[in-house]
């Protein structure tokens, strides 16, 4: 059965990609890409994506560049993105949120937490769409 939401997972570690796919496949359509460049290309090709889950440290295009790219694009600037990283320091977390990330999950993660954070971010963005559609 086709799932309601498309989650784009961008992560260079194939093991973590596998774990995330396993974790999310029951609730979401999962697409995995191995770096920001491939992920961004997927978006540009006009494939439907509702939320992005992205690593920070990756070859070719890292997570921070990906956020900057999304937020600079008039079409993708509202695309929800959750960062997933081993960087646990608050400086990196704050920098990412300040650049426009919607949430931040530290590795190693609890799979249930990832699932719930995706749901909460989606709930907020969907709610804001409804608000925009009906101004009163």
């Amino acid at each position: 059965m086709k799932k309601l939401y498309n989650v784009l997972v961008i992560e260079d570690d194939s093991f973590i990609r596998k774990v995330l796919r396993q974790t999310l496949k029951d609730d979401f359509e999962v697409i995995t890409k191995e770096n920001g460049m491939e992920g961004m290309s997927w978006l540009e090709e006009g494939n439907p994506v509702d939320i992005i889950l992205s690593d920070i440290q990756m070859p070719h295009m890292d997570g921070k560049n990906l956020i900057a790219m999304l937020r600079a694009s008039p079409v993708f600037k509202k695309m929800p993105i959750i960062m997933l990283s081993t960087f646990a320091d608050s400086d990196t977390r704050i920098a990412c949120l300040n650049m426009g990330a919607d949430d931040y999950i530290i590795k190693p993660f609890n799979p249930m937490e990832v699932k719930m954070k995706i749901s909460t971010v989606l709930r907020r963005t969907e709610a804001s769409k409804v608000v925009q559609a009906n101004p009163d």
Partner: peptide
Amino acid sequence: TIDLTADPYHGYVIDAFP
């Protein structure tokens, strides 16, 4: 707003700027 997943843009137009 512009929907890049829909025709005629799908697969060709990668972004739209004001």
